[in-house]
């Protein structure tokens, strides 16, 4: 619980910084902190595999992709027109309302939840067997999806000869 008390504020602070900072690169670095904090929370929840996969995919790949996109689109300089959209108040109200509803639901259903549980000890081999057994169809679909999205991303972002304005 002590570790949770450290990790949860860190993660939320990373997320908050990511949406509030003015400098876009700082936002990307802050979101990397939030991702790492989430990975540690996964470890805290005994989900070792998911935690390491989270670091590998999010900190190692998604954050880097974001950073590349920021530099390729020259958005590392703070624009003079401001960083928040014209309708920022509406967005904020919607987000606050969503949080209020979610928190109300979570706090309201407290009695229905099981309290203490034996800690599940899951070996990676079990996850492997599950992936190759019961979840083999989703695995194949994800493989196709990843291949398709890779090709799609390359085609979308590829330099078009003469076509660009």
């Amino acid at each position: 619980m002590v570790i949770f008390a450290i990790l949860a504020p860190l993660t939320v602070a990373g997320g908050l910084a990511a949406v509030m900072l003015r400098n876009t690169v700082h936002c990307a670095l802050a979101v990397a902190v939030a991702f790492a904090g989430l990975a540690l929370l996964f470890l805290q929840l005994n989900a070792q595999f998911a935690g390491f996969a989270q670091i590998l995919v999010y900190v190692g790949a998604v954050a880097i992709l974001v950073v590349f996109a920021i530099l390729l689109t020259r958005s590392s300089e703070t624009p003079a027109t401001g960083v928040f959209s014209k309708t920022w108040l509406t967005g904020l109200v919607i987000a606050a309302a969503v949080f209020a509803v979610l928190a109300w639901a979570v706090l309201g259903s407290r009695t229905a939840l099981p309290h203490e549980q034996i800690e599940p000890q899951i070996a990676v081999a079990q996850i492997g067997y599950a992936l190759m057994g019961r979840y083999v169809l989703p695995l194949e679909i994800v493989a196709v999806l990843l291949t398709a999205s890779m090709i799609g991303a390359v085609i979308v972002a590829m330099y078009e000869k003469g076509g660009a304005k």
């Binding site: 690169v25 670095l29 990397a32 790492a36 990975a39 070792q48 595999f49 390491f52 996969a53 670091i55 590998l56 900190v59 190692g60 790949a61 954050a63 880097i64 950073v67 530099l71 590392s76 070996a123 990676v124």
Partner: peptide
């Protein structure tokens, strides 16, 4: 002695990239 040791190693290796970007930028 970790059950997912190799995955841990690669996760750490992947995090080093971000620090290199931080240095350069």
């Amino acid at each position: 002695p970790m059950d997912a040791g190799l995955l841990f190693y690669f996760a750490m290796g992947a995090s080093a990239e971000l620090s290199i970007f931080m240095a350069g930028w």
